[in-house]
């Protein structure tokens, strides 16, 4: 079932800029430009792109707080802008940098508010609260005022608040921003569980580990257009991503020659060899070990920021 459908959706903003002492020049900015995609129920989709690409604008249109300038948009069968309040009961939204919780009151009060807001029946509320408390380890936090929570704890609190009403879709905007490694892992683990239980997840992030660990599908948006839609391996291929073999030799020497790899950097006895991500490192390692005084080595996985950057570069060049 298609849960989210966008058909040539655009959104333009009018920006006024100073063009003299009193005159203002108006010009139009296309934040989203003819965007089409669908998301099936139960998917977990990473929605990525550089700052200003149109990610937030898309999310705002999907939640109904921004009306598209053109095109057709449906979430769970309804037009979000027209039925914002009705739709709001069926979706969950979490912003890493904003909170829906009452700052001065214990977490429990915000949950009680959610129960009223989303008209959650007592039995379902009790069950969902219990599940959130368990999965997000909120037990000790329920009676703590939100302002006293750490960022990671607050984030978990926000995730709980967004899920008490069993939303069909969960929109996440940078859910792991600013969190430490442990908190990030916890949040990801929770999101995996939520998705496995059937909730459709649309995730915006700059931390590409989030995507690697959670999303079977990645959409890349730039200048308001979809420039990639596929799985992570496909993104690597599209970005011609490379892994890196870091080699430590016994002594400095000339650049290593190995089939299928090229030296990208030399620093004293250490050399960096790049090779296509889909290729095995074993033959290269064997070749190097055979012909050079090898002391140590390690393989680095591609950084997806670079993959995307290369993909943009490719798109502009082609």
């Amino acid at each position: 079932m298609e849960l989210i459908e966008l058909d040539r959706v655009s959104r333009t903003f009018t920006v006024r800029s100073k063009a003299g002492r009193l005159r203002r020049r108006r010009h139009e900015v296309r934040a989203v430009d003819g965007l089409s995609f669908t998301v099936r129920a139960g998917e977990c989709v990473g929605y990525i792109g550089p700052n200003g690409a149109g990610k937030s604008t898309t999310i705002k249109m999907l939640t109904g707080i921004l009306v598209p300038s053109a095109g057709r948009l449906r979430v769970a069968g309804v037009d979000p802008a027209r039925e914002r309040v009705a739709l709001a009961r069926r979706i969950g939204v979490v912003f890493g940098q904003r909170t829906t919780l009452w700052w001065d009151l214990p977490l429990r009060d915000s949950y009680e508010l959610a129960r009223r807001l989303y008209r959650i029946e007592p039995a379902r509320y009790a069950a969902n609260l219990e599940r959130c408390v368990e999965l997000l380890q909120l037990g000790d936090l329920l009676d703590t005022p939100v302002r006293q929570l750490s960022l990671g704890q607050r984030m978990r609190g926000d995730l709980g608040a967004a899920l008490l009403h069993d939303p069909q879709v969960l929109y996440l905007d940078e859910p792991t921003i600013g969190l430490d490694v442990l908190s990030k892992a916890r949040v990801r683990e929770f999101l995996r569980e939520v998705n496995a239980a059937g909730t459709t997840v649309l995730l915006t992030t700059h931390d590409l580990t989030d995507i690697e660990q959670l999303c079977g599908r990645v959409m890349v948006i730039d200048h308001g257009r979809l420039v990639f839609d596929g799985d992570l391996a496909g993104l690597h291929a599209a970005g011609r991503s490379e892994r890196t073999l870091v080699v430590d030799l016994a002594r400095p020497g000339p650049p290593i020659e190995a089939p299928g790899a090229r030296v990208v950097k030399v620093a004293g006895a250490r050399q960096w060899l790049a090779f296509p991500a889909e290729q095995s490192a074993a033959p290269i390692v064997a070749a190097v070990a055979d012909r050079y005084p090898l002391q140590d080595l390690s393989v680095r996985e591609p950084v997806i920021e670079d993959v995307i950057a290369r993909m943009y570069a490719g798109a502009v060049g082609g």
């Binding site: 309040v85 009705a86 904003r98």
Partner: peptide, 14 residues
Amino acid sequence: RSGDIAVDLYRPVD
């Protein structure tokens, strides 16, 4: 000013 107003608009409430 902070843009948190967006959060308020996501709520199913008048």
